[in-house]
């Protein structure tokens, strides 16, 4: 696979900033708590519906994702990978089991506490970008900070948007941006709060292969350079091969784990799951 110039630049830019960013909490924290998982779930059960019609989307899952790593969750449709991510990210509450974000137990939190946790400690990336059409790119990026009433760190904003190559597009509304640009705005929004974990749900699903590759390289770069923790759900073996490790899910259970995956290894495992 050949990386286009743009991707080289985006990957390189955080590298230049890496040293200066060392003192920041978001970079240091995962390193300190390395033995502890950045996000984890134990004995997670999620049942949709009830009785006979009930579907067990997660069936007693124990899982942990280490800090400062780029992890992928893979599995066929209906394997429970999205449910697992939603539970870990505090978007959904498991039927039973425990979810930890760092040292915080998310299971016992109220809706409001969960909301505040998401706002301040978690970043999100979605397949369909999910930018607000009424806000400009910059307003979209700063939205999480605005919601919490925090002052934006202009320098961090400039670094991020410069690295992502969207610094010239900040005044535009989403409808005036290409799909790749929109997703890069979404990445900047996910990173602006220096979250403990970024959860990405099929982030390349709506992108062409070139833009997709660029995005994955940037995510990988952010893990390498800032020690960012990224957990990505995908069904695309190419996307998964960019991750440090892949967790395979089938029928609500963990079906395997691949470290330093290659496309072939992932495809192999998937084929085995299918068979």
């Amino acid at each position: 696979m050949s990386f286009p110039n743009g991707s080289q630049r985006t990957a390189a830019s955080p590298a230049e900033q890496g040293g200066a960013d060392g003192q920041h909490g978001s970079a240091g924290q995962p390193a300190e708590s390395a033995p502890e998982a950045a996000t984890s779930g134990s004995a997670l059960v999620k049942v949709y519906g009830s009785g006979e019609a009930g579907v067990r989307a997660l069936d007693n899952v124990d899982i942990g994702f280490a800090g400062g790593r780029f992890s992928a969750i893979m599995g066929p449709s209906g394997s429970g990978k999205s449910t697992l991510m939603h539970c870990l990210a505090g978007l959904d509450t498991p039927t039973s089991g425990r979810v930890m974000l760092g040292t915080t137990d998310l299971t016992g939190l109220s809706d409001k506490q969960l909301t505040l946790t998401r706002r301040d400690r978690i970043g999100f990336l979605f397949q369909s970008f999910n930018l607000l059409p009424t806000l400009t790119a910059e307003q979209n990026i700063l939205l999480p900070l605005e919601l919490s009433g925090r002052k934006p760190d202009r320098q961090w904003l400039n670094e991020l948007t410069g690295a992502l190559g969207i610094d010239q597009r900040l005044r535009h509304r989403p409808s005036e941006l290409s799909g790749g640009q929109q997703q890069r705005v979404a990445v900047a929004r996910a990173l602006i709060t220096r979250p403990e974990v970024v959860f990405a749900d099929e982030p390349t699903g709506a992108l062409d292969s070139k833009s997709g590759a660029n995005l994955l390289e940037f995510l990988r770069g952010s893990v390498r350079q800032f020690g960012q923790t990224v957990v990505m759900v995908t069904h695309d073996p190419v996307a998964a091969s960019h991750a440090d490790s892949v967790v395979l899910l089938a029928d609500g259970n963990i079906a395997g784990r691949i470290d330093e995956p290659t496309q072939e290894a992932v495809l192999d495992s998937l084929r085995r799951l299918g068979g």
Binding site: D111, K112, R119, F124, N130, P144
Partner: peptide, 16 residues
């Protein structure tokens, strides 16, 4: 609906 959900995910409280 989707937008509201997104805002909630990003940290907009129910009250907000």
């Amino acid at each position: 609906g989707r937008e509201s959900a997104l805002l909630r995910a990003l940290g907009l409280t129910r009250g907000q």
